Amino acid sequence: NQASVVANQLIPINTALTLVMMRAEVVTPMGIPAVDIPRLVSMQVNRAVPLGTTLMPDMVKGYA
């Protein structure tokens, strides 16, 4: 099973992602693959992402 990107903290809307905000976890359903974490750094979320939420492609501006 491939790990997905999960929020390590509450990420407010329009926040630029940093490594500290994300962790890799095997979850269902799968979200953004953990291998993409370096690519996500400095991209912004388009909604508030609660702690423990799996990041989906439509939550990150410019990802999809």
Rank of each mutant, 00 (worst) to 15 (best):
N1G: 09
N1H: 09
N1W: 08
N1C: 04
N1K: 15
N1I: 14
N1R: 05
N1S: 15
Q2T: 14
Q2L: 07
Q2C: 04
Q2K: 10
Q2E: 14
Q2A: 13
A3R: 05
A3N: 14
A3P: 13
A3F: 14
A3E: 12
A3H: 08
A3D: 07
S4E: 01
S4I: 01
S4R: 02
S4N: 01
S4W: 02
V5M: 02
V5C: 04
V5Q: 00
V5E: 01
V5H: 01
V5S: 04
V5K: 01
V5I: 15
V5Y: 01
V6Y: 03
V6R: 04
V6K: 05
V6E: 02
V6C: 04
A7W: 02
A7E: 01
A7V: 07
A7R: 02
N8A: 15
N8Y: 05
N8F: 05
N8W: 05
Q9W: 05
Q9M: 13
Q9I: 13
Q9L: 10
Q9D: 13
Q9A: 07
L10G: 11
L10A: 09
L10Q: 06
L10V: 12
L10K: 12
L10C: 04
I11L: 06
I11D: 00
I11T: 01
I11P: 00
I11Q: 00
I11N: 00
P12S: 09
P12K: 13
P12W: 04
P12Q: 08
I13N: 10
I13E: 09
I13W: 15
I13S: 13
I13A: 11
I13K: 12
N14T: 04
N14F: 08
N14H: 09
N14R: 09
N14G: 12
T15Y: 06
T15K: 05
T15E: 14
T15W: 05
T15R: 06
T15V: 11
T15L: 05
A16Q: 04
A16H: 06
A16M: 12
A16L: 13
A16N: 08
A16Y: 08
L17M: 10
L17G: 00
L17V: 04
L17C: 01
L17S: 00
L17P: 02
L17Y: 01
L17N: 00
T18Y: 03
T18I: 04
T18S: 15
L19M: 07
L19S: 10
L19H: 11
L19K: 06
L19G: 08
L19T: 07
V20R: 07
V20Q: 09
V20T: 06
V20I: 10
V20M: 11
V20W: 08
V20P: 06
V20L: 13
V20G: 12
V20N: 12
M21F: 04
M21T: 04
M21W: 03
M21A: 08
M21S: 10
M21P: 00
M21E: 02
M21K: 04
M22P: 00
M22H: 00
M22R: 00
M22S: 00
M22F: 06
R23Q: 06
R23K: 12
R23E: 08
R23A: 10
R23L: 05
R23N: 07
R23F: 04
R23H: 12
A24H: 05
A24Y: 06
A24C: 04
A24M: 14
E25A: 09
E25N: 09
E25K: 06
E25L: 08
E25W: 06
V26Y: 11
V26G: 08
V26I: 12
V26N: 12
V26W: 12
V26M: 15
V26L: 13
V26F: 08
V27E: 03
V27K: 12
V27W: 03
V27Y: 02
V27N: 04
T28R: 06
T28K: 15
T28V: 10
T28I: 10
T28F: 12
P29F: 06
P29N: 04
P29S: 06
P29H: 08
P29Q: 11
P29I: 10
P29L: 06
P29T: 09
M30D: 08
M30Y: 13
M30N: 14
M30R: 08
M30A: 10
M30S: 13
M30F: 13
G31H: 01
G31P: 00
G31S: 02
G31Y: 02
G31I: 02
I32H: 00
I32R: 00
I32E: 00
I32Q: 00
P33Y: 04
P33R: 11
P33G: 09
P33W: 04
P33S: 09
P33M: 12
P33L: 06
P33E: 06
P33F: 04
P33I: 06
A34P: 04
A34Y: 06
A34T: 06
A34F: 11
A34E: 04
A34G: 10
A34I: 07
V35K: 15
V35H: 11
V35T: 15
V35L: 10
V35P: 15
D36M: 11
D36E: 10
I37Y: 03
I37S: 05
I37N: 01
I37R: 09
P38C: 04
P38T: 13
P38Y: 10
P38I: 14
P38H: 15
P38Q: 13
P38V: 13
P38L: 10
P38D: 15
R39M: 14
R39W: 10
R39V: 11
R39Y: 11
R39E: 10
R39Q: 08
L40S: 00
L40A: 01
L40P: 01
L40T: 01
L40G: 00
L40H: 01
L40Y: 02
L40R: 00
L40M: 14
V41S: 04
V41F: 06
V41T: 06
V41N: 06
V41I: 12
S42N: 07
S42D: 09
S42P: 02
S42V: 03
S42T: 08
S42R: 12
S42I: 03
M43L: 10
M43P: 00
M43F: 13
M43W: 11
M43T: 06
M43K: 09
M43H: 09
Q44V: 15
Q44Y: 15
Q44P: 14
Q44T: 13
Q44N: 15
V45F: 01
V45W: 01
V45E: 00
V45G: 00
V45H: 00
V45A: 06
N46K: 15
N46F: 09
N46M: 10
N46G: 14
N46T: 08
N46D: 13
N46L: 15
N46R: 12
R47F: 08
R47N: 07
R47S: 11
R47T: 14
R47M: 13
A48E: 10
A48D: 13
V49I: 15
V49W: 02
V49C: 04
V49R: 04
V49L: 08
V49M: 08
V49D: 01
V49E: 02
P50H: 07
P50V: 09
P50T: 08
P50L: 10
P50Y: 05
P50W: 08
P50C: 04
P50G: 13
P50M: 09
L51N: 10
L51G: 14
L51Y: 14
L51W: 11
L51F: 13
L51V: 13
L51D: 12
L51A: 14
G52M: 06
G52K: 05
T53H: 12
T53S: 06
T53P: 00
T53V: 12
T53R: 14
T53D: 10
T53I: 09
T53W: 10
T53C: 04
T54V: 11
T54Q: 04
T54L: 06
T54I: 15
T54R: 04
T54F: 02
T54S: 09
T54E: 02
T54P: 10
L55A: 00
L55G: 00
L55H: 01
L55K: 00
M56N: 06
M56Q: 15
M56T: 13
M56F: 15
M56A: 08
M56W: 05
M56K: 06
P57Y: 10
P57F: 07
P57M: 07
P57L: 04
P57S: 09
P57Q: 07
P57C: 04
P57V: 14
D58M: 12
D58H: 09
D58A: 11
D58N: 13
D58C: 04
D58R: 05
M59P: 00
M59Y: 14
M59K: 02
M59T: 07
M59D: 11
M59G: 03
M59A: 11
M59W: 06
V60P: 01
V60W: 01
V60S: 01
V60L: 11
V60T: 02
V60M: 08
K61F: 13
K61H: 15
K61G: 13
K61W: 12
K61V: 15
K61P: 15
K61S: 15
G62F: 09
G62Y: 07
G62T: 11
G62A: 08
Y63N: 06
Y63D: 04
Y63V: 05
Y63H: 06
Y63Q: 04
Y63M: 05
Y63A: 05
Y63P: 08
Y63S: 04
A64Q: 15
A64S: 12
A64D: 13
A64N: 12
A64G: 15
A64C: 03
